[in-house]
């Protein structure tokens, strides 16, 4: 049995189109799962459903705890178990005392565990630090554990800034504090919503190392929403790619992100940003990640492709040289 089982559905009413989020997957303990997809694909909504910030239909089970379940039950299954305050219809007779938290298919009833009770740490894209509290107070708000707070701040090298208020910190510092605050709850599951998107390259890398360190150090199960292949490849050991609310790919980042097939030695995904035609040759200008390269293409290819096409650049007989940068 997997550590986390998720099988949810929810109708989403987006700015451009309405769609149905519908997905089922499992997560093992201590996995680092990345959720990728275009913006508007439903990845943040999925994370919010797991956190309990949004309701959905279906089931979420973590360990032996049910966080969400409201699958249609038959009348005979809807009994009150007495422990729960939720209104349920009591059925007279023999079923009255049955435990409704059993989840083997038939016995659970409507249940929604509020975010306050889920053992999670959540890091928001925009940090969401409390502006009225200084760094230390932000951490202690979660739990009055000064020892843990100081330990975490020391780990991210920010102990000397514990008296500062969030609006005096840089983006990278804010995100570190947000990470520490999420860990103050001693969560088993860490949820990250595009945690690096507001940071520059250098800070990104530092923070990635810290997240990976915490993931190992505290035996966390981490779920990260991201659209950066580099981030995912570096941190995650499993990933799912979603589109229009459905899972389209599941696997390890290596399987999904490395585009090489067969005998290809080298293959990169990019986007044509310009095609330059001269009398003799045609050149495609392709953006690959944060780099831009020029590639000579034939007349035929020049006619086939146009600007903004997504392309894969690969080569077979190829021996790249790797040099360190001094």
């Amino acid at each position: 049995m997997s550590y986390i089982h998720i099988n949810v559905s929810k109708n989403l009413f987006g700015a451009q189109k309405n769609m149905k989020l519908e997905m089922e997957f499992n997560i093992e303990k201590n996995d680092f799962l990345a959720i990728s997809g275009e913006s508007g694909s439903g990845k943040t909504t999925l994370l919010r459903i797991i956190a309990g910030l949004e309701e959905a239909n279906g089931e979420i089970r973590v360990g032996d705890e049910i966080w969400l379940s409201n699958t249609n039950l038959q009348t005979r299954d809807i009994v009150s178990c007495g422990k729960d305050k939720e209104k349920t219809r009591k059925r007279k007779g023999k079923d009255k005392d049955k435990d409704c938290n059993v989840f083997n298919g038939l016995w659970y009833k409507n249940r929604f565990l509020p975010p306050q009770k889920r053992k999670i740490g959540f890091v928001f894209q925009d940090f969401a630090l409390f502006p009225n509290m200084n760094v230390l107070e932000n951490l202690l708000y979660v739990q009055k554990d000064k020892k843990l707070a100081n330990k975490l701040l020391e780990m991210v090298g920010m102990k000397n800034l514990s008296e500062r208020y969030p609006n005096t910190l840089s983006g990278g510092q804010k995100q570190r504090i947000a990470l520490c605050r999420a860990l103050m709850r001693k969560p088993e599951i860490l949820l990250l919503d595009e945690p690096f998107s507001a940071l520059d390259e250098k800070r990104k890398e530092e923070l990635q190392n810290e997240i990976y360190f915490f993931h190992k150090e505290f035996n966390l199960t981490t779920i990260m929403v991201s659209h950066s292949s580099t981030e995912i490849y570096k941190l995650a050991d499993k990933m799912i790619e979603i589109k229009n609310g459905k899972i389209i790919k599941k696997g390890t980042p290596r399987e999904i992100l490395l585009k090489t097939r067969g005998s290809e030695k080298f293959s990169l995904k990019g986007r044509i940003i310009d095609i330059i035609n001269t009398d003799i040759i045609n050149i495609a200008v392709v953006s690959l990640g944060s780099h831009i390269v020029e590639i000579v293409i034939s007349q035929k290819e020049a006619e086939k492709f146009k600007k903004n096409d997504e392309v894969i650049i690969s080569t077979k007989a190829f021996h790249p040289n790797i040099k360190g940068i001094k």
Partner: peptide, 21 residues
């Protein structure tokens, strides 16, 4: 910012504490 309200819920705090703190 709605996120700081949600961040408070995710810190394990209920609605009343979130309101006052």
């Amino acid at each position: 910012n709605k996120n700081i309200i949600e961040a408070s819920y995710l810190s394990g705090k209920g609605k009343l504490i979130t309101l006052f703190k």
